[in-house]
């Protein structure tokens, strides 16, 4: 599997800084964005495997951002990570195509493991597509 590239989207700067630092220590490629809008414009030109999204953000909220990402880049996996404990939000997020829903504060290893799972899903989908393409060519 190629190396994992992630994008963390959170309006809380402190959180973002800390998590990016911790990801780098664990050799995970990690970008940061402070809003849904910023995340979408970054995704337009940067390949990312997994996006980790906060739900409550000013401007575009997490669920809207998630829907937009799934529309533009269906293969990119999205994990919702939020301090907002709500069954409705969890449900809506998962139905809109989120890979998983996690509560803050999150155990960093658990998050890492989840990122790898999401990445694996993406790789499998990609190789299935490749297989299909090569079949069509013949």
């Amino acid at each position: 599997m190629n190396t994992l590239t992630t994008l963390f989207v959170d309006d809380e700067k402190d959180f973002l800084e800390t998590i990016l630092k911790r990801m780098k220590k664990r050799h995970v490629n990690a970008y940061g964005a402070e809003s849904g809008e910023e995340a979408l414009s970054l995704l337009a030109h940067t390949p990312v495997d997994v996006v980790v999204l906060d739900i409550r953000m000013p401007g575009m909220d997490g669920i809207e951002t998630l829907k937009e990402i799934k529309k533009r880049l269906p293969l990119v996996e999205v994990i919702l990570l939020t301090g907002h404990a709500s069954l409705e939000a969890a449900r809506e997020g998962m139905e809109s195509g989120a890979f998983d829903f996690m509560m803050k504060p999150v155990n960093i290893d658990e998050l890492l493991y989840k990122l790898q799972d999401a990445h694996k899903n993406k790789s499998i989908q990609e190789s299935k597509i490749k297989h299909l393409e090569s079949k069509l060519k013949r």
């Binding site: 709500s86 069954l87 969890a90 998962m94 829903f101 996690m102 509560m103």
Partner: peptide
């Protein structure tokens, strides 16, 4: 948060 996590 427990109810939400179980539910998710």
């Amino acid at each position: 948060s427990s109810a939400t996590t179980v539910s998710a």
